[in-house]
């Protein structure tokens, strides 16, 4: 378990992380969200023991990251932003080095190397120098390195940043696969990623924690949660006032005049039944109609801009 208490970091008097507290349990995949410069990377660097907090403390499985740094780091796999690596080394050499540094040797080392090479599928590039690898392969080498000693905690700073959609998908699948028996913390500013892999989302803005809940609960905070978007096959005159009159509608947003709209509900209101009733009564032919899940980026904007303002 990870226990973060009143974590604060100041650089030259500028507060980058401000009094952040939360806990993470084994089996959780925590999405760490925030705009650029919100303090995500700084927090992760402190978690990994690279930076020391100005105030507050971090305990990982009961051990303090500053006081018992080496013992904690033995349990952590950390992928810094951009997956830096010793570019002039060959992939196999590099992984072996990282494994040796974590105290692995002999048969156990060879077995773990085989396992992670297989897991992230980099067997084909073992003899290549890291500087010659594509971004996707480089990221996978970075992931392999974090896993080689079978850590209980994975800290991944923007693990999918700069990857193409296929590669993103692979990395996310890998993270889901790993999360069963580990604590995984990933930082990201890609919201779909949170919905896709995280069991919990923590949002920070301006160094402060502004939200901590399940991605699904976050979606519920969106004004689009429970909204319905509808598109008719033919334009209908004065459609907008008719939709506004549907019971429970707070507001409508136009997508195409007299043809396609999004209906935003009043709190707790259900729009589906009254809307379909109206459509049937008017004999409109519906092209598409669907319920919105609530938009994470909407909530994200709402939460992070409040903080800045």
């Amino acid at each position: 378990m990870i226990d973060i208490q009143n974590l604060t970091k100041r650089f030259d008097g500028v507060t980058v992380v401000n009094d952040v507290s939360f806990q993470v349990q084994a089996g959780e995949v925590l999405g760490f969200l925030g705009p650029n410069g919100a303090g995500k990377s700084t927090t992760m660097k402190m978690l990994a023991g690279f930076l020391e907090p100005t105030a507050g403390q971090i305990q990982i499985f009961g051990q303090d990251v500053v006081r018992d740094r080496l013992a904690v780091q033995q349990r952590i796999g950390y992928l810094p932003e951009g997956a830096p690596a010793y570019d002039d080394m060959r992939v196999g050499q590099y992984l072996q080095f990282m494994a040796q540094m974590r105290g692995l040797s002999g048969e156990r080392l060879r077995e773990r190397l085989r396992y992670v090479v297989d897991l992230v599928d980099i067997g084909a590039v073992l003899e290549q120098r890291i500087q010659t690898l594509s971004k996707g392969f480089k990221r996978r080498v970075g992931l392999a390195q974090t896993l080689v000693h079978d850590p209980q905690v994975l800290i991944l700073d923007e693990p999918t940043d700069g990857l193409d959609p296929n590669q993103k998908h692979q990395v996310r699948q890998l993270i889901r696969q790993l999360s069963a028996d580990k604590i995984v913390i990933i930082s990201t500013h890609i919201l779909e990623e949170v919905a896709a892999v995280c069991s919990r989302a923590v949002i920070i803005a301006g160094g402060r924690l502004v939200a901590d809940s399940r991605p699904h609960e976050l979606e519920q905070r969106s004004r689009y949660y429970g909204a319905i978007s509808v598109r008719l096959q033919q334009p209908v005159a004065d459609l907008e006032p008719a939709l506004l009159a549907v019971s429970g509608v707070e507001q409508v947003e136009m997508l195409e005049p007299d043809q396609a709209y999004v209906l935003l509900p009043q709190p707790q209101a259900q729009l589906y039944a009254p809307l379909t009733e109206l459509i049937e009564r008017q004999g409109w032919v519906v092209d598409t109609l669907h319920m919105e899940r609530g938009r994470l980026d909407d909530v994200f904007q709402q939460l992070t801009q409040q903080e800045v303002a």
Binding site: K45, Q73, I76, P80, P84, M101, R102
Partner: peptide, 8 residues
């Protein structure tokens, strides 16, 4: 950042 987050 890699080097100093290894247990060394």
């Amino acid at each position: 950042e890699m080097l100093l987050t290894l247990p060394v």
